[in-house]
């Protein structure tokens, strides 16, 4: 051992020996810094990034809560209005009750009426076509047509033909009702919601002015218990 010390002292000069410890210390510190930077900095960066993401999501969620709370009350009404105007099932029954009801109200006679089957067009719109022939005075017939035009579920008049015979006015018209399936997917909880745009508000306002059918749900009828089976 002593021989080794003597040898090292001989090999390493006094200058190198005095510089050796501080230099090794400096190099060690350099490596420690490098290692620590590599280990700690990514953790700080990841954590900061995560906080930023959570904050972003929180802003979205807060906004979403605010919008939903704000529109909660009025949506109850809007849902009914829009769902009756554009239903998810064939509105034939409602429409037929309106065709008959408005005819009575406007003193118009229904000569004949026909309802076609469901047609799905290229855009996946499900339509049901109605052909109705009515007669009455011109004024009454147009009041009747206007009632149908402004009725909910929405209708589209594709054509109409007016003829006169012996002072009577006859109008045969074709109209369509529409129905679509309801949306089945609700976006992820972190997805933002959009307020109704002005355009959408205008459409809703138009839909709310349409005359709704008298019934939207058919109540089950009978059989009921007869209290007195002999009468």
């Amino acid at each position: 051992m002593e021989a080794f010390n003597i040898n090292s002292k001989k090999i390493l000069g006094p200058d190198i020996r005095i510089l050796f410890v501080p230099v090794v210390l400096l190099v060690g510190i350099f490596f420690l810094f490098t290692f620590s930077f590599k280990f700690i900095l990514p953790r700080i960066t990841t954590q900061t990034q995560k906080i930023k993401e959570v904050r972003g999501r929180m802003v979205l969620l807060e906004e979403k809560i605010e919008i939903l709370r704000e529109i909660r009350e009025r949506l109850l009404y809007d849902t009914d209005v829009s769902l009756v105007a554009v239903p998810d099932t064939n509105p034939g029954l409602w429409k037929f009750s309106q065709i008959k009801g408005y005819a009575e109200e406007n003193q118009v006679n229904i000569e004949n009426s026909k309802v076609g089957g469901e047609i799905i067009d290229k855009r996946q719109i499900t339509k049901v076509r109605y052909t109705v022939k009515v007669n009455g005075s011109l004024e009454d017939i147009f009041a009747y047509l206007n009632d149908l035009i402004n009725s909910s579920p929405m209708v589209n008049f594709s054509s109409a033909k007016l003829t006169t015979s012996r002072g009577e006015v006859y109008v045969t018209f074709d109209m369509e009702t529409y129905h679509w399936e309801l949306p089945t997917k609700i976006p992820a909880i972190t997805e933002p919601v959009k307020r109704l745009s002005n355009d959408e508000e205008n459409v809703l306002s138009y839909l709310s002015k349409l005359k709704k059918p008298e019934f939207t749900v058919l109540e089950p009828s009978g059989p009921y218990d007869r209290k007195d089976p002999f009468n």
């Binding site: 939903l68 529109i71 949506l75 109850l76 809007d78 849902t79 829009s82 769902l83 105007a85 554009v86 929405m154 529409y178 679509w180 309801l182 949306p183 609700i186 976006p187 919601v193 959009k194 109704l196 355009d199 959408e200 459409v203 809703l204 138009y206 839909l207």
Partner: peptide, 13 residues
């Protein structure tokens, strides 16, 4: 409800 209304309004359009 909001999604439903927006969907129905789009269809009404």
């Amino acid at each position: 409800r909001l999604i439903l209304v927006q969907d129905r309004v789009a269809k009404a359009k």
